[in-house]
Design a binder for these strands. Structure first.
Lengths: 352, 352
DNA sequence: TTTAGCACTCATCAACTTCGAGTGCCAAAT
DNA sequence: ATTTGGCACTCGAAGTTGATGAGTGCTAAA
């Protein structure tokens, strides 16, 4: 966008001021708070121009200007200067992430917590997408007659399990026989190549009546498929109620209503990931959606900052923040990225 | 409480009206909506008396009366007439509960959903308290070197598991040896009698260096103990924002803030269960706390209606509703109880 | 191109009014 | 001894008004 330097300065000042005061900013206020070498009248002309360009707008005739979505976008893309977290901010986040960790899911939960607490907004993490991962173990454990636990172990050490019903009179040995046949034949198979058909053919040699076998196979299939389901950790919804941006009850309601739909948010984050307008700057990596760019009801006044964490070489998932579009972008981006790095480190450490 | 019949009628009418209109009710409004055979002046006298008794109060001098906590309590204890759910209401709840169920936890989630949707309030369910249940199986599965899955099976078929770290060079056989020793020696032991000491002594005969053993035993111990942790399913928080009772943002914020603290709510429900002022009427069974009786910040304007579901003969857990204290108590109580019954039935069906 | 100046706009706030549902109390009626 | 009609009084809600002031666009001079 071909803005001359002064216009950039003005837009930047407007965004900065508006973010910190939540008051529409006018030409005089701008002069007072920043060292412009020109008069308010000149700024007024500049602001009129910025408005014509669609970067700022006024809530009503006699008010100051506020950034439009496009204005925020311009700000994020080329105006803001990066923020560096203080040592104590970093420490606080690190502490939260490393608190009583046993599994990757603990790390994810902790990271969600750290992000929500440090930003004061909503944060979310999703378990890694498992497309591309493959089966390394499949065990079945008899719980009691008619009931078994299917344990699915995937590459990168991801473990999922599920209690399933099986025919009552199947013995422990038969169950073990089935599961080890599956395991032997499907070892290394990518998750998306495992179907009812490949599963069934993997147990051909087992000496178990077909009808019984079918039920077990079906249950195992469901268990494997559900391993693919993404879990979502969402935290800090109620924090949005403290923000002036959502002091209108209707807005707050719409927002929380949509957020309470785990699947909806997760689906959307996945979509962002796919369309991948990834921003890289320094060792920061993130994706960002602002205001109306978010196609979710009730999130018109929000921005979405997400990033990608990795487990091993093959698995990755998303973690991010949902805050008001009137947020301190550079700060939140730093926080998200610090969490991403710390999370990656800890995941690595955990799998050593 | 020794109220004469007319006072009871008046209190009942006030509660009914206030619940349905959310407007303080005055003597005239009362006459209009109900077939009282006396004049408004008489009602005024009665109301003054009820106020003296602490059953109703006025928000300000020139307004009508609203029920006090004590008034609601009196209403709930002896005035309200039971509500009967329509066939379609019952159907809707049943459908939600039986939707795609594989395990008890699915039922609990579904029941929570059903309650929240049918009442329009927040609902919650907790996994069963496991005190009194005993160990029936303990298996350890090697996931990869240094990592194992501990599967704990308790009486009544409750399965919990956890990924733990173990010394890197332990073999699958050694792991199996340990877990089967534990299982053999601790089979049938109540959960609360399993300690690090009983665990350690159960594996004395295994031929594994003590230092290694200790680590494994410790992890197994943690896994068993965490099986005791109660999960909470909470749903419908955002629905509270649509209620006029929480149209004040501050109230709403406090409420959601407290609700977002899973452990806090769960702990409180447990406390209610223990103090057990259980109400029984017909085949309904429930516990109820109203307004200030609830010792949680932000829930002063709420009521808590909980009940107990059963798994087998030994396990039980709670499920219930958190709504505004200005709620249709008889209706919500019916809904909670219908869910309780349906849930119990389905749990039984599931374990057949 | 910048700036001072000026007329104009409009949200916000406080002061004031009106309105009406509600109250308490008293004296008359049952 | 209750009940009732009547009446003066209270006070929140909602509406009106006017002052304030931060903001604007525009114009004409620097």
């Amino acid at each position: 966008m071909g803005l001359d330097d002064r216009k950039k300065q003005v837009l930047q000042a407007i965004v900065d001021d508006y973010v910190s005061t939540y008051e529409p900013v006018g030409s005089k206020a701008l002069i007072e708070r920043h060292n412009f070498t020109v008069s308010s009248a000149t700024l007024r002309n500049e602001m009129a121009e910025l408005e014509r360009l669609g970067l700022i707008e006024k809530p009503h005739t006699s008010a100051g200007r506020i950034p439009s979505d496009k204005g925020y976008r311009e700000y994020v893309d080329s105006l803001m200067h990066p923020d560096i977290l203080t040592a104590s901010e970093q420490q606080e986040i690190s502490d939260r992430i490393t608190d009583s960790v046993h599994e990757v899911t603990d790390l994810l939960k902790n990271a969600t917590n750290a992000l929500s607490e440090s930003t004061g907004f909503v944060s979310l993490a999703m378990t890694p997408r498992l497309t591309g991962s493959f089966l390394t173990q499949l065990k079945m454990l008899m719980i009691e007659p008619g009931k078994a636990l299917v344990v699915v172990v995937l590459s990168a050490g991801v473990v999922k399990d599920k209690v399933v019903r099986i025919p009552n009179f199947l013995t422990n040995e038969q169950i073990m026989q089935i599961s080890s046949a599956v395991e032997k034949n499907l070892y290394g198979k990518p998750l998306d190549e495992i179907t009812l058909i490949t599963l069934a053919s993997s147990v051909k040699e087992a000496e178990i009546p077909e009808a019984l076998m079918n039920q077990v196979i079906y249950e195992a299939y469901v268990a494997i498929k559900q391993a693919d389901k993404l879990d979502v950790y969402l935290e800090g919804e109620h924090k949005m109620l403290s923000l002036p941006d959502f002091s209108e009850l209707g807005r707050a309601r719409d927002l929380l209503g949509t957020l309470s739909h785990d699947g909806m948010v997760a689906g959307y984050v996945n979509e962002i990931e796919k369309s991948s307008e990834v921003v890289r700057s320094g060792d920061d990596t993130y994706m960002i959606r602002i205001g109306q760019e978010i196609a979710l009801e009730g999130l018109e006044d929000c921005s979405f900052i997400t990033t990608t964490y990795n487990i091993g070489d093959t698995l990755s998932g998303n973690i991010g923040v949902i805050g008001p579009k009137r947020m301190d972008y550079s700060k939140v981006i730093s926080q998200v990225n610090f969490v991403r790095k710390k999370l990656n480190d800890e995941i690595k450490r955990l799998s050593e």
